[in-house]
């Protein structure tokens, strides 16, 4: 092979280097610029900082859609004993009043309209004065139309999840996975990943994947982590959660 030192004679003709040089006005090749001069750092940061902004701020905003729920729902009000709300010995019991198990052990998830009308059965008599309540009666109860709720916690189709195994047999609290959803007066905006269609609550609110609470994320690893912690490694078999 040729000795590189010998062959490195300066040349200004040809090659992609000169092409690049041509692009940059006033370029003087003879000026020696130390690799990390101040301006070097500035340019480095000029690339780095916008990239960080794009990756950490703009990208997450662009990645998730925002959809409002069809109407508001006030969990606090429904659980308020002062206004005849749902009572129960435990929080879980209160939740289960509406988010109940069927006889075959399956879980209803978000209750159907029929569950609402068990209590709010008269379309003629308004519940209160809010716009939501008026909407609820006019749009849904009167036409017997199901409310198209957007589910924050619906796992993708490939996932099987048994609530009864966790809540009844495993005696887990609802909030372990769902957080303090029952303490909200307003339903948060539903946000879904535009590529995957997953709710942000499933895939983690934190874009970096960092988890502060048990309910911040409901990914496979989170399930497995809990199973392992509780000594139920056998439930990490693929088919326990995949279908």
């Amino acid at each position: 092979m040729k000795n590189p030192a010998n062959s490195s004679e300066k040349s200004s003709k040809g090659g992609w280097m000169s092409f690049l040089k041509g692009l940059i006005p006033g370029n003087n090749d003879s000026t020696f610029v130390p690799p990390f001069s101040l301006s070097g750092w500035i340019f480095l940061l000029a690339g780095l900082i916008p990239a960080l902004i794009v990756g950490w701020l703009i990208y997450p905003m662009a990645l998730y859609s925002k959809q409002p729920q069809p109407m508001n729902f006030n969990h606090v009000l429904h659980l308020d004993p002062d206004v005849g709300g749902i009572e129960g010995d435990t929080e879980t019991e209160q939740c289960l009043y509406c988010h109940e198990f069927r006889d075959d052990g399956s879980f209803v998830g978000i209750p159907r309209l029929a569950k609402c009308t068990e209590c709010h059965d008269d379309p003629e008599s308004p519940l209160g004065e809010t716009l939501e309540e008026k909407d609820f009666l006019e749009k849904y109860v009167a036409d017997e139309k199901e409310i198209p709720w957007l589910s924050y916690y619906r796992q993708p189709d490939c996932v099987y999840f048994s609530h009864i195994a966790h809540v009844r047999m495993g005696e887990m609290e609802c909030r372990t996975c769902h957080g303090d959803h029952h303490k909200t007066e307003n339903l948060p905006t539903y946000r879904a990943n535009i590529l995957t269609g997953y709710s942000i609550n499933i895939w983690g609110k934190n874009i970096a994947g960092y988890k502060f609470n048990t309910w911040d994320r409901m990914k496979m690893d989170d399930c497995a982590e809990c199973h392992t912690k509780k000594g139920h490694e056998e439930n990490n078999a693929c088919f326990v959660c995949h279908k």
Partner: peptide, 10 residues
């Protein structure tokens, strides 16, 4: 199996 288990749990 999952269906049967759920029923059993119920």
């Amino acid at each position: 199996l999952m269906r049967a288990k759920n029923l059993a749990y119920a």
